[in-house]
Computed example of a mutant assay.
Amino acid sequence: MSAIKGRGAVSGAASMRFNLPVREQDGDWRDEAETVDGPARPPATTVTEEHPRSILAFNQSPDIPFDRSVNAYRGCEHGCIYCYARPSHAWHDLSPGLDFETKLFAKPDAAALLRKTLAKPGYRPAPIAMGTNTDPYQPIEGRYRITRQVLELCLETRHPVTITTKSNQVLRDLDLLTELARRKLIAVGISVTSLDPHLSRLLEPRAAAPAKRIAALGRLAAAGVPAHVSVAPVIPAITDSFLEGILSEAAGQGVRGATWIMIRLPHEVAPLFREWLDTHFPDRAGKVMATIQSMRGGRDNDPEFFTRMKPNGVWADLLRRRFRIAARRLGMGDPDVALDCGQFRKPSLDGQLSLL
């Protein structure tokens, strides 16, 4: 396998779970196409507009702190090789590899659909999470502005919302975020994986550079927007050396909340990540996977509730201790932000708020 410029995955391997067709070498001309024609061009990004019947997804997972979410996009051009959302593309008969970061879906009706849900007589407010599957501020948000439309609706209806991103483009909506923060309706988390821009380009090729994410955290904090840094994911022998530095840089920007998450490799993510390791870090690929398995009960991934978010073993204990010591020294704690659900007011379907 060889790296593809501007992309995280090094292949378009199909999902084995759904029996998607996989082309095998059979001796025809396509087996020698690159020898004759040269390397194939890097895949271009395409966007398909999707028009679902609903946009608010509910979950009953006992180990995550929200029960509803909005995902404005499917797939993510950031191309993070470790992204746990990659397997979702297999449901579209698309590859969790290159297809996930090149064949994107946008939902331009998201805000209108959410308005209908919020207007229902039985609806009860609780924080809506954005960025739980794919990034709400990936590059195509600059064109579609779907995330902004949803935030505008949340401000209009006084509905609490949380955002998770690895893009400094969240600052495009600083006007809305500031107003939501004034009403205790917003919390923002920005994930930072390393402080090395070269490593970042390998891991997450189209995400914002680490320095830009740190600076964005500072801008949010200065504007009074509750913002925390997430050292996520931590990859042993690849990014774990940056843990204390990331916390220190964020604290220097006035950020007081911090979390960390160990890498997770569900379904097709594990073989894609192994390909990435063999391509970029063949000298330590075995060590990385052995360390991950030591924290996941001997497997590439632990899918069980609660333990999937809490790795165990000596390496996990060491990382947990390092994080706690660094956070305590820097005066950082859990990002415990109490959002206000009591201000919610139902919208009317014509866009006018009720007077009652």
Rank of each mutant, 00 (worst) to 15 (best):
S2G: 10
S2N: 15
A3S: 12
I4A: 07
K5C: 14
S11C: 13
A13D: 07
A13M: 09
S15A: 14
F18M: 14
Q25G: 07
D26R: 13
D28S: 14
T35F: 12
V36F: 15
G38P: 10
P42G: 09
P43D: 03
T48D: 11
E50S: 11
L56Q: 00
L56Y: 08
A57S: 15
P62I: 12
P62A: 10
I64E: 11
F66H: 12
D67G: 15
A72L: 13
A72Q: 04
R74L: 12
R74V: 05
C76M: 03
I81S: 10
Y84V: 02
Y84Q: 06
A85E: 12
S95K: 01
L98H: 07
E101Q: 05
A111N: 03
L113C: 03
T117W: 07
T117Y: 02
L118I: 10
K120R: 14
K120Y: 03
P121G: 03
Y123L: 06
I128M: 08
M130S: 08
T132L: 00
D135C: 08
Q138S: 06
G142K: 13
G142T: 14
R145L: 10
R145N: 08
R148Q: 11
C154P: 08
P160K: 04
V161T: 09
T162G: 02
T164P: 02
K166S: 07
N168T: 06
V170K: 02
D173L: 05
D175V: 11
L176D: 05
E179C: 02
K184C: 10
L185R: 06
I186S: 05
I190D: 04
D196E: 01
D196A: 04
P197N: 00
L199N: 05
S200D: 08
R201N: 03
R201L: 14
L202M: 15
P205Y: 01
P205K: 03
K212I: 08
R219P: 02
A221I: 05
A222V: 01
V225E: 00
A227Q: 02
H228Y: 15
A232K: 01
P233L: 07
A237W: 01
S241Q: 14
S241D: 15
L243G: 04
I246A: 07
Q253Y: 09
G254I: 11
V255I: 11
V255C: 06
V255E: 05
G257W: 00
G257I: 00
G257Y: 01
T259I: 06
W260H: 12
H267K: 14
L272R: 05
F273D: 00
R274G: 09
W276G: 00
L277C: 04
D278C: 12
T279K: 09
H280V: 11
D283W: 13
A285Y: 03
T291F: 02
T291D: 07
T291I: 13
R296F: 03
G298S: 01
D300V: 13
P303D: 01
T307D: 07
M309F: 12
M309I: 05
K310N: 14
V314C: 00
A316I: 09
F323A: 04
I325H: 06
A327G: 10
R328D: 15
M332N: 04
G333H: 10
D336I: 08
L339W: 02
G342D: 12
G342S: 13
P347H: 05
G351D: 07
Q352K: 08
